[in-house]
Simulated scan of single mutants.
Amino acid sequence: MEFERYLLKTLLNHLLPNKVNLIFGTRRVGKTYLLKQLTARTAYRTLTLQGEDYDTQQLLAQRSIANYRRLLDGVELLIVDEAQEITDIGLILKLIVDQIEPLRIVVTGSSAFDLANLSGEPLTGRAYFHQLYPLAQCELAPYENSLETRQRLDDRLVLGSYPELLQLSGTADRQEYLKNLVNTYLLKDILAFEGVRNAAKVKDLLRLVAFQVGKEVSMDELGRQLQSSKNTVEKYLDMFTKVFVLVRVGGFSRNLRKEVTKTSRWYFTDAGIRNALINDFRLPALRTDAGALWENYLIAERLKILQAQRRPVEFFFWRTYDQQEIDWLELENGQLRAYEFKWSDNRATITRTKVPKAFADAYPDATFTAIHRDNYLEFIGG
């Protein structure tokens, strides 16, 4: 079954002469598949290059206008897949986009690509940046009815949404796929960063964070458990966000002294990766962390739909020192929205969910909504 990725329409709208569209995402998230969908929907004369191909690397290494004009003669759309493997790709693209007209460029890469090659000067003002997540519920919705969506929810909380999982029928095969994904592609991207050598420590840190999803993480405590410095832990956690494995959520405050702001919560962009790290693929009904699974799933899916809708939303959690808290806050165009996530299907429990008094007093114009299994599809665009 083929799914139209949510970035496709955005890319088609941004295929402009002498602009570069940069698509970032983890390995196996579907970047190459998205490129195939893109070329099928355009009539441009296209040249596709594979960044992992040695001949491609050598072809682009000769950084001269004459070389690139020969290569791109008659080409209207240039695609470079896995471009992080090409040395100085940012400078190469800058020369091409400035000197060869009219040319549209689409480039994919893992996160190391951004830090190593494209941060700073080379493509300033010349590029659109896009992040591709695993499959979103809004992408799956056209291909399933409401009953199928409900029946598949447990699997999505446990196994996540990497596209290739849909091609595997057995539960054991899907679990094995996720374990291999963690141990090969995911760690490969992380270890590509300069100064990261200890794969075991990196994986141990991710495991510790996986056990604390939805909780505030103490850098000092993680450092003690790993026998590493607080600075090293902070560096690695920042790196995990840049390889699109983790999402950092900070505390919200408008200077109320009793609000917590100096700690962060961390969520995985895909629940399957989180569960593979802790080697727990049990169904939510059999787990003590079902609430954390639900919270992580909703946040990952919310980020996908917000990106699909191209909405510039800031997000936070909220807590006071006397333990009043809200799971998820969004600030958009001055409007503050608060959401509390409830996994329980007990109607009385859901009905009792009220906005904390301290929050209501401090932010009377904010909205408050409990997100549960009866209304979650409205929240994630499904």
Rank of each mutant, 00 (worst) to 15 (best):
A43D: 12
E101Y: 15
K94H: 14
E85Y: 13
L47I: 04
G51F: 08
E85P: 02
D88L: 08
I86Y: 15
D88M: 11
Y44D: 03
D88V: 03
L93Q: 09
S64W: 04
D55V: 07
L95A: 06
D73W: 04
T46G: 04
T42M: 01
T56K: 01
T87G: 01
A43L: 03
I86K: 00
Q99C: 05
E52K: 11
L34C: 05
D98F: 11
Q57L: 09
Q37G: 00
L38F: 02
T46A: 03
T39I: 02
V97H: 10
G74T: 09
R63V: 15
E85T: 04
A83F: 13
L60G: 04
L49K: 00
L49I: 04
D53C: 11
A40S: 03
V80D: 14
D98N: 09
L71Q: 05
T56L: 09
A61D: 07
L91F: 09
D55M: 12
N67R: 12
K94T: 11
L59E: 02
D55T: 06
Y33D: 04
Q58E: 09
R45Q: 13
T39M: 08
Y68C: 06
P102F: 13
D88T: 05
Y33E: 03
K94P: 12
K94L: 07
Q57K: 02
A83Q: 06
D53R: 05
R41Y: 01
Y33Q: 10
E52I: 15
A83V: 12
N67Q: 15
Q37Y: 07
Q57N: 07
I89E: 14
I96K: 02
I100H: 11
L49F: 12
L77N: 03
R45Y: 09
Y54I: 11
E76S: 07
R45T: 03
I100S: 13
D81L: 03
I96R: 00
T87E: 14
I79K: 01
D88K: 14
Y44A: 02
T56F: 08
L38P: 00
